[in-house]
Design a protein around this nucleic acid. Structure first.
Lengths: 346, 346
DNA sequence: GCCTTTCTCGCATTCGAAGTCAAATTAGCG
DNA sequence: CGCTAATTTGACTTCGAATGCGAGAAAGGC
């Protein structure tokens, strides 16, 4: 029958009833409960029964229905991952990493992407409907929205956003610290005239980075600092540098709130303004994305330890799925300074 | 009660029973069926009833349980998206696009990532267990594996891989055509000594691209063609050019099977071999990824129409979820020639 | 006002697996 | 071999929403 591939059986195949544990039970001459037990690791089944059932199951091509299982066990084995469009674009690998780590622990990623901030409420309703076991959130949420999730008793972890005024689960990279390292590096090389291309004003990460840099510059007594706002895109890095340079041509060090803008900045310096990097202008970024290491850029930057961060997010969420009483926790990772060659040496 | 946020109610909140349609029914003084109908668009309910039920539902914070619904309707509203690690890295935006387009039509992405080819069978079992409505596959599958999916009667669409010898749903970009355009462009500029950096030998897309280029070169009478194998990574583009140049220094045009390798190639030419691009060496890529447009590279390439392709994949899969009898179909899109500046002009 | 037709609504069942509990089987041991 | 203890097994119920069907209510027609 498996070999017959005529149009007719083709059709029959399509509309054919799914095979359930009852079908397997009937074929094996046992009860449905027995079949269920055979698929549960560590259940009390004799090996004779197991063999019998497995034979029938394989014969019928039976796979347990995860939906039905979820209904009764109240565990869907799905974790919602919520990403805003931008986040997704700059850290593609994060999604894949999270998915792989979760699936290694028997959970799947149900993906929720956010086009506009305003869609969040609808999206949260959706997340709740799907009865996910937990959420990993890499998007901006308001206080009330967080309240709404907490009220549902759904475990969640924020990825790269933390809230100083809230006890909340989060894994982050220490943006401020990394930015201070970069400033030290630039100041150590003798730079005195700084430009900063910040992230968009609604980005928590962007704000932390820029604030970290500004604070440190202030501490070491640098007061010549100009800031223009970017949106994390290549174009905004390029335009940002042009604006800065027009405003104050003496600038010789630019701190960008992420790598992609830093790359735009390097390109603008070299290809539009004719400024040598790092000879005439030092440029630093943040993130350590793939292209930052390409030899045309070779950015001086701080890399986020993505592997450790995703692992932390995954374990935090799963620990809380198992035990919702766990205290909330923030795990903050230090970045990794990448020397690169886009900043002048001392 | 909502205002009380002490540790005690916190605990109570966590273990509290979920609110079901029965709870809503009881509060509204109606039957469970009525509640269910109120949440089904187009069902026969009086407006008085609807108002009553909605009030109760909102009061309790009720959201229908999608898992229970799926069980009875036999429709999970989830589409599995299967990506191999590499695919995911080079087309991050694809995943986000697919997710957004699917969610606009009421479906969610359940993500399956593939670390190794060997994991596919386990992964397919998982996909089947979750009772997804369909699959979008951007990974290599063997003939038997495809058979296995077909046997389940699960609709599926391949993204950017097609099988000449099989009637199968697929959306692709016409790799061969694009590659021929690029060759025409290079030959038109007078190039005679070609190098090709291919994709890995197990990549269908890579093979089509390289074959397309080779065929066209042959047609126009170019016989001086050297091929080295790459793996789509920046490093392999860089190393590929170095190998090619060592083997035959007269090469003046390099065709890379994707943009990232082309970028590696440009960097190697300029920063390691000291060859001007496009003055001494023309380099072309394929894909039209973001960095290909960065001014340091400004690649001459063929862009895949990602938006139209993802839209096509999404509609194809959903049409087949609604109507599994539909004929299988291949939708092949032409790429978009991007002139760029990494290839010499005529 | 009475009878027919059309809406609404509730009862009861269904989806498919898991878990409870008691019956049945097997093993253990003198 | 007989009796108790341990292990297997099956009948039945559960999870939460959807739906076919029939009863009751409202609307329509004369």
């Amino acid at each position: 029958m498996q070999k017959d591939r005529s149009a007719e059986t083709d059709h029959v195949r399509r509309v054919r009833k799914r095979v359930t544990s009852y079908d397997v039970a009937r074929r094996a001459g046992v009860s449905q409960s027995a079949v269920s037990r055979c698929f549960k690791p560590g259940a009390s089944v004799s090996k004779k029964m197991r063999a019998q059932v497995m034979k029938a199951a394989i014969g019928l091509g039976y796979q347990p229905n995860a939906i039905a299982r979820s209904l009764i066990t109240r565990r869907s084995n799905m974790v919602a991952v919520v990403v805003s469009q931008k986040t997704a674009l700059y850290y593609p690998e994060i999604l894949v990493e999270i998915s792989q780590r979760l699936s290694a622990r028997g959970e799947r990623v149900l993906l929720f992407t956010l086009e506009q901030e305003s869609d969040i409420d609808l999206l949260l309703d959706q997340v709740l409907q799907y009865q996910v076991d937990g959420m990993i959130i890499a998007a901006r949420l308001s206080g009330e929205q967080i309240d709404a999730i907490e009220d549902r008793g759904l475990p969640f972890v924020f990825y790269n956003r933390s809230f100083k005024d809230r006890q909340i689960n989060a894994v982050c990279c220490d943006q401020s610290e990394g930015e201070r390292w970069l400033v030290n590096r630039l100041v150590g090389a003798g730079h005195k005239h700084f430009g900063i291309i910040s992230g968009p004003e609604d980005s928590a990460v962007g704000i932390e980075r820029t604030q970290g840099a500004v604070e440190r510059l202030h501490e070491v007594g640098v007061s010549d600092v100009d800031i223009v706002e970017g949106d994390f895109s290549y174009e905004s890095g390029r335009d940002g540098l042009i604006k800065l340079h027009r405003k104050k041509p003496s600038i010789d060090a630019v701190i960008c709130a992420n790598d992609v803008m830093a790359i735009g900045c390097v390109d603008a310096a070299r290809n539009e303004l004719g400024l040598d990097v790092p000879g005439r202008l030092s440029i630093v970024g943040f993130d350590g994305v793939g292209p930052s290491a390409w030899s045309s850029y070779n950015l001086t930057t701080v890399r986020q330890p993505v592997g450790r961060m995703t692992e932390a997010a995954v374990s935090m969420i799963l620990e809380r799925v198992e035990n919702p009483e766990l205290q909330s926790e923030k795990r903050i990772f230090s970045g990794i300074m990448i020397e690169g060659g886009s900043a002048r040496s001392a």
